[in-house]
Amino acid sequence: MTDLSFTEEQRDCLQELINVAMGLASDKLARFLNTFVHLQVPAIGLVSAAEIPEQFRGQYQGLNSSMISLGFFGDGGLRGETILLYQLDNAGKIAALLGYDDDATSEAEMLTDISSILTTTFLNGLADQLENSFSYAAPRIISSRDSDFISKLEQTAFHWQLALKVDIRYELTDYSFDCNMILLIPGEAVLKLKTILDHVLAEF
C-alpha cells in the first residue's frame, strides 16, 4: 500500500500555504461584506476519507447544515473535491448582510456565492503557490435543510482516499461564522501533492 502520510516538514509547509490562501479568501470576504475578518491559524488535519462522516456527525447531525461540493482539477494529476460545511443559521446572517431575500431560490444562489468566495479564492491561492492552476466543476449543493446529512457525506467521501480537514473560524466584527472545509484528494493526487511540497521545501 502506498504511504499517504505526510512528514512534519510537509505538514508545516502545507499549513503555511493554507494560511496564505486563507488570507486571500478572508480579504475577499471582508471586502465583499464590507467588514473586518479576524483571522486565526486554521487547524489542519489529514485523515482517511472514510473517517470523515463520523468526525462530522457530532458537529452537524440534527442541525440545519449545508454542504457545498466543488470539484477541482489541476495540472499533473492534482485534483480533488472540496466540501464546505456550515450551519445554515450562520449562513442566514451572511445572507442578510449580502442582501439576499429569505426564500429557497435565493438560498441556493447565496450558498453558491459564499462557496465561490470562500472556496474558489482559497483554492486559487493554493494553486498559485503550488505553481499549478485549477479548473472547477460547477458547485453542487449536496445537502440542505431536510436531507440526511451524514449519509450524503458518506456517499461523497466514499470516492476518495485522503481528506485534508481545514477547520476555519471566520470571526467578523459583529459575529462569528464557523465552517469546515474538507479537501478530498485521491491517492495518486496525494503523492503528487507530496512531491510538490518537497519541491517547495527544497527551494528554501
Binding site: V20, G23, D27, F36, L39
Partner: peptide
Amino acid sequence: VSADIQPEMQKRVMDLGALAFIHKP
C-alpha cells in the same frame, strides 16, 4: 510579513508603528 492582507489590518499595524507591510509569500 503577513497572509492577513485586509486593508483594515494593514492600517492597524501601520498605526501601531510598523515600518512596512509585505504580503506573503
